[in-house]
Simulated assay, not measured.
Amino acid sequence: MNKIEALLRERSGNQCELCKSDKDLQVYETKPESITTEANSLLVCNTCKTQIDKTAEIDAKHWMVLSETMWSEIPAVQVVAWRMLNRLKNESWAQDNLDILYLDDETLEWAKEAGDEHDNQSSEVHKDSNGNQLFDGDSVVLIKSLDVKGSSLTAKLGTVVKGIRLDPNNPEFIEGRVDGQMIVILTKYVRKQS
Rank of each mutant, 00 (worst) to 15 (best):
140 V>H: 01
16 C>F: 01
66 L>H: 11
142 L>V: 12
159 T>A: 07
132 N>M: 06
134 L>H: 05
124 E>K: 14
185 I>Y: 04
187 T>R: 07
188 K>W: 00
186 L>E: 13
184 V>D: 10
155 A>K: 01
124 E>A: 15
103 L>F: 11
71 W>T: 13
133 Q>I: 13
129 S>W: 01
18 L>D: 03
127 K>M: 06
43 L>Y: 07
11 R>N: 04
45 C>V: 01
71 W>F: 13
104 D>T: 14
115 G>D: 05
90 N>I: 14
87 R>M: 12
141 V>F: 01
30 T>K: 02
39 A>P: 08
132 N>F: 04
74 I>H: 14
7 L>S: 12
56 A>K: 15
11 R>M: 04
150 G>Q: 02
99 D>Y: 13
42 L>S: 00
138 D>V: 02
134 L>V: 06
52 I>L: 01
98 L>R: 02
99 D>M: 15
190 V>G: 00
186 L>Q: 12
180 G>R: 02
164 I>Q: 04
167 D>C: 03
150 G>E: 01
17 E>P: 03
32 P>A: 11
192 K>E: 00
147 D>H: 14
87 R>V: 09
141 V>D: 01
90 N>H: 10
144 K>Y: 04
99 D>V: 12
166 L>V: 05
78 Q>W: 15
26 Q>A: 09
74 I>A: 14
193 Q>E: 15
72 S>D: 12
156 K>G: 01
8 L>H: 02
122 S>P: 03
189 Y>V: 06
149 K>N: 12
3 K>E: 12
111 A>G: 02
107 T>E: 10
61 K>L: 07
38 E>F: 08
169 N>A: 06
32 P>F: 11
128 D>A: 00
86 N>T: 06
99 D>Q: 10
168 P>M: 05
72 S>A: 11
51 Q>F: 01
13 G>C: 07
57 E>F: 06
134 L>E: 08
59 D>Y: 07
69 T>L: 15
29 E>M: 15
6 A>P: 05
59 D>Q: 06
101 L>R: 02
156 K>A: 07
167 D>N: 10
177 R>W: 08
24 D>F: 15
119 D>G: 02
148 V>C: 03
21 S>L: 11
32 P>I: 09
110 W>G: 03
35 I>L: 07
158 G>N: 03
161 V>M: 09
181 Q>K: 15
184 V>S: 09
1 M>Q: 10
50 T>G: 15
112 K>F: 07
89 K>S: 14
111 A>N: 05
38 E>A: 09
51 Q>C: 05
144 K>M: 10
26 Q>R: 09
12 S>Q: 09
34 S>F: 14
108 L>E: 12
132 N>I: 03
61 K>I: 11
45 C>H: 00
103 L>G: 03
71 W>M: 10
91 E>P: 13
157 L>K: 05
154 T>E: 08
41 S>T: 14
24 D>C: 10
65 V>E: 11
31 K>D: 08
114 A>N: 06
131 G>C: 00
192 K>F: 00
164 I>D: 02
77 V>S: 11
45 C>A: 01
130 N>S: 11
35 I>E: 09
47 T>P: 04
23 K>V: 11
174 I>W: 04
40 N>D: 13
84 M>C: 08
86 N>D: 03
10 E>Y: 13
105 D>E: 14
170 N>P: 08
